[in-house]
Design a binder for these strands. Structure first.
Ligand code: FES
Ligand code: FES
Lengths: 136, 136
DNA sequence: TTAAAACATACTAATTTAGTAGGAATTTGT
DNA sequence: ACAAATTCCTACTAAATTAGTATGTTTTAA
């Protein structure tokens, strides 16, 4: 029940975009360097962030990335979702996955996992990037 | 950020102990069969449950396991902790582990992960085995 | 004394996570 | 026009974790 390193990397990367005062896009190379993340690996993570509508890319020379929305509009939930595909605490909660529980139709624990998941979602949605900016 | 199958197995096994009306210990073989868990694998999990003071073993013929405490005294937190060693959402929160964050002394995210962890702990501590028994 | 149980340890297989390699496509400044 | 810097794309590999087996030993009740 751990956050993946992807989420950690992505959060720090996106935070760096949020901090930027520049009007120019920030290239991956720069973030990779300052956050000590392998550059090629970060590239992949940024493509993910783009898919999930968190950042906007500018291609070509002097290109790079911007946040697509204001920091106060980007929640931790979005970032972790982009990193992990889904925020689901238990296999049963994922669509189209086999469950280990044979008793799925009246499973005693299903509701518990579901509530747990909601609890986590709510927490993650209650934080935005802005909360980290202002705390500096 | 998933619950391991171990936690799932353990929960269902421990629940089966809680349900038992018998005054005799329940052998692993029985639970393995009814829950479709490989028997030898379950053995290992039960040794874990014992270490974490959740069950009590009776050795030898006609032996097996009892819950060590009343169902209302056994929390989900305890069970998941037994399964996963620790309930820590992020590496930084584990004692004696390297963190990916270089900026550890004044890391902006550390507090967030910590709060997240507390939030999860509180939820897991608010459920006991008894909650599942009565909901049947 | 035998059978059924827990206990122990070491190994293996499967899956997931983290990271690399090698480019193609796009854009800008010179 | 062209070189450089960038994103984008796909496939591969390495490392780590998780899940499961194998092969017993020890304990105890009948
Ligand atoms: S259906 Fe998921 S634990 Fe039962
Ligand atoms: S010290 Fe853990 S993310 Fe910074």
């Amino acid at each position: 029940m751990k956050i993946s390193i992807n989420a950690d990397y992505m959060l720090r990367a996106v935070f760096e975009l949020a901090q930027s005062k520049s009007d120019k896009p920030i290239p991956i190379s720069q973030i990779a360097k300052s956050q000590h993340i392998p550059s090629k690996f970060l590239e992949k993570l940024f493509r993910r962030l783009k898919q999930y509508d968190i950042v906007k890319a500018i291609k070509g020379k002097n290109g790079g990335y911007f946040l697509k929305h204001k920091p106060e509009e980007i929640t931790m939930h979005q970032i972790i979702q982009a990193a992990e595909g889904q925020v689901k605490i238990h296999n049963c909660l994922e669509r189209s996955k086999e469950t280990t529980c044979r008793n799925i139709d009246n499973c005693i624990f299903r509701e518990f996992w579901h509530k747990f998941n909601i609890h986590i979602d709510e927490f993650l949605k209650s934080y935005t990037l802005n909360d980290f900016l202002t705390s500096k």
